[in-house]
């Protein structure tokens, strides 16, 4: 019986690994769709030819693909990946399925940072003006998570304490943001409102490069901690008794989460639900063995954001909707279905 059960377990793991590959292929196809979609619709053949450097591609098409659409599509993909991976890790270390960068005030803090740059003109010194809003947002988001960890440690560091501080922080940042909106000039207010809706309109290769580096640096550490994070699903005490240094695991994981979410939000503005929906869908697909759960969350987030990027262009023809609005609109039905599914199970 033992061998038969282990064979079934191995088959199950192969299916999960195949699902990871399928999600990666779907995310790649979603990017392709994103590249084809826009005011000038591009045929699939031309798009692929432009991507692969084909010689018979019209120059205009190559410019549209490489210089206009690919930075946007790549940034959407990476932001989705970063936020969903951050959400997945956050949910595990805070032992709460509702934890994500958005609910813990990271986005609100980033928005407050952006507002201080846009409204007050306070920026990080020695940085080019073009980066000032993102840099401020990054500093505030990272600062918020740092403050959260510090407060949590002073108070004993349990997940409940961190979540409560996160909610308080979120409200505090939102109130200060309202204050800045109140005193902002009409121009600054418009810029700020647009930023808080989340937008890929300002995507450029530099942003893509920054986020790609952050992901490449953090994701391997996430995967290395996969068994420890899996153990934490049995509760902090159990994980401790298995030999996991839970406090250190939480600290390092929240550092990764901080870098991922602060970078993503600072580059594109407030994006809701990806950090929540990505991990939930991944959990339904592959369960909670973090060797599969983390990559599937990452890819699900990438897929959602990529599809949202396409939808943002086609929902109202001729208008590019802020992508934060679209992800929230996709996220809401998923969220409600999860609530009702949970309710039915109880």
């Amino acid at each position: 019986m033992t061998q038969a059960l282990l064979d079934r377990y191995h088959r199950q793991n192969r299916r999960r690994a195949a699902l990871v590959v399928v999600m990666a292929v779907m995310a790649a196809l979603a990017v392709l769709l994103d590249l084809m979609t826009g005011p000038a619709g591009l045929p699939l053949g031309d798009t692929i030819a432009a991507l692969t450097g084909g010689t018979d591609v019209p120059r205009g098409t190559a410019i549209i693909v490489w210089e206009v659409r690919l930075p946007v599509a790549a940034l959407a993909l990476l932001v989705g990946a970063a936020l969903a991976l951050a959400g997945a890790e956050m949910q595990t270390v805070l032992e709460n399925p509702l934890a994500e960068p958005f609910t813990l005030g990271v986005s609100a803090a980033a928005a407050l940072g952006a507002a201080t740059a846009i409204v007050l003109g306070l920026t990080v010194p020695f940085l080019p003006a073009v980066w000032s809003v993102s840099a401020n947002a990054f500093v505030f988001a990272l600062g918020a998570l740092g403050l959260l960890q510090l407060l949590g440690r002073l108070r004993g560091g349990g997940p409940e304490v961190l979540i409560l501080f996160g909610i308080a922080l979120s409200f505090a940042a939102a109130s200060l943001l309202s204050l800045l909106q109140f005193i902002a000039s009409p121009d600054a207010l418009q810029q700020l409102v647009f930023w808080t809706m989340g937008s890929l309109a300002a995507a450029e290769w530099r942003s893509v490069g920054v986020l790609a580096v952050v992901l490449l640096v953090t994701a391997p550490f996430s995967l290395r901690a996969a068994w420890q994070l899996t153990a934490l699903r049995m509760g902090a005490d159990q994980a401790r008794s298995f030999g996991v240094n839970v406090e250190s695991l939480r600290r390092w994981t929240l550092l990764r989460v901080s870098l991922l979410s602060a970078s993503a939000v600072s580059l594109v503005g407030v994006i809701g639900f990806v950090g929540l929906a990505g991990p939930h869908i991944a959990r339904m697909l592959v369960g909670e063995d973090h060797r599969f759960f983390l990559p599937t969350s990452l890819l699900t987030g990438a897929l959602i954001m990529s599809l949202a990027s396409t939808l943002a262009k086609v929902v109202v023809p001729g208008v590019l909707l802020p992508i934060g609005l679209v992800t929230s609109l996709i996220g809401l039905p998923i969220f409600f279905s999860l609530i009702f599914r949970g309710g039915a199970r109880r």
Partner: peptide, 16 residues
């Protein structure tokens, strides 16, 4: 938890 029994016990062995 959606973990299966086998992987939950493997985690007890491998996490440390």
């Amino acid at each position: 938890s959606t973990l299966i029994v086998l992987e939950s016990v493997i985690a007890a062995l491998r996490a440390g």
